[in-house]
Simulated scan of single mutants.
Amino acid sequence: MNPIKHVAIIMDGNGRWGIKKRKSRNFGHKQGLKSVEKIIKETLKKKIRFLTLYAFSTENWKRPKNEVNYLFSLLDNFLSNKIKELHSQKIKFVVLGKKKFNKKLNNLLNYSEKLTSNNKKLQINLALNYGSKSEIINAINNLKKKKLQINESNITRNLYTKNTPDPDILIRTGDRKRLSNFLLWQLAYSEIFFEKKLWPDFNEKDYNNILNKFKKTKRNFGKI
Rank of each mutant, 00 (worst) to 15 (best):
T52L: 01
K114V: 07
I169V: 11
S132I: 13
K213V: 09
P64K: 04
K5N: 14
N163Q: 01
I9K: 01
G28M: 11
F101Y: 07
Q123L: 11
K65V: 11
K65R: 13
G131K: 03
R25T: 11
K34N: 14
N142P: 02
Y70A: 05
N106Q: 07
N2C: 06
K218M: 09
E195I: 13
K103S: 04
K162W: 02
K20H: 10
P3W: 08
S80C: 10
K197S: 08
K90A: 06
Y160V: 06
L211T: 07
W61I: 04
G222R: 01
K162I: 00
K21F: 10
E204S: 08
K23H: 04
E67N: 05
K218Q: 10
K41F: 09
Y207K: 14
S80R: 11
K84V: 13
K104D: 05
N107P: 00
N125M: 08
K121F: 06
Y111L: 13
S35I: 03
V7N: 12
V7C: 09
I40V: 14
N125Q: 03
L105W: 08
L128C: 12
N151L: 08
I10A: 04
I136G: 06
Q186C: 13
K103E: 09
L51D: 00
E191N: 09
L143W: 03
T52F: 01
L128N: 10
S24Q: 14
T58Y: 07
K100R: 09
K120W: 00
L71S: 08
K90S: 12
F78I: 04
R178I: 05
L184Y: 10
Q186M: 11
L115D: 15
F78L: 05
Y54I: 01
D206V: 10
N110V: 12
K92F: 01
H29N: 04
F101V: 08
N119Y: 01
E135K: 06
N119V: 04
N81G: 08
L86V: 13
K98D: 09
K162T: 00
T217I: 07
L122R: 11
K197T: 05
K84F: 15
K133W: 00
I91V: 05
N106D: 06
S80Q: 09
K215M: 13
W199C: 00
N106V: 02
H87N: 15
Q149A: 15
S35R: 05
V7K: 09
W17P: 02
K177F: 12
Y111A: 03
N66C: 02
K114T: 12
G222F: 00
K223R: 06
N141Y: 05
L109T: 01
I40Y: 02
I4D: 11
I137L: 12
R219D: 05
M1F: 15
S134P: 00
E152Y: 09
M11P: 01
L179S: 11
K100D: 00
N181M: 13
N181H: 12
S132Q: 12
F27W: 08
H6W: 09
R178Y: 06
F214K: 01
L128T: 07
S180Q: 04
T161N: 09
T43K: 07
V68T: 01
N209L: 03
I124N: 10
T164R: 13
Q149K: 15
T164K: 13
K34H: 13
L74A: 05
E195T: 11
G97I: 15
S112Q: 14
R22G: 09
I40E: 03
N66G: 00
S35K: 04
K145L: 12
H29W: 05
K215P: 12
K82V: 15
K45H: 14
I9N: 00
L183D: 12
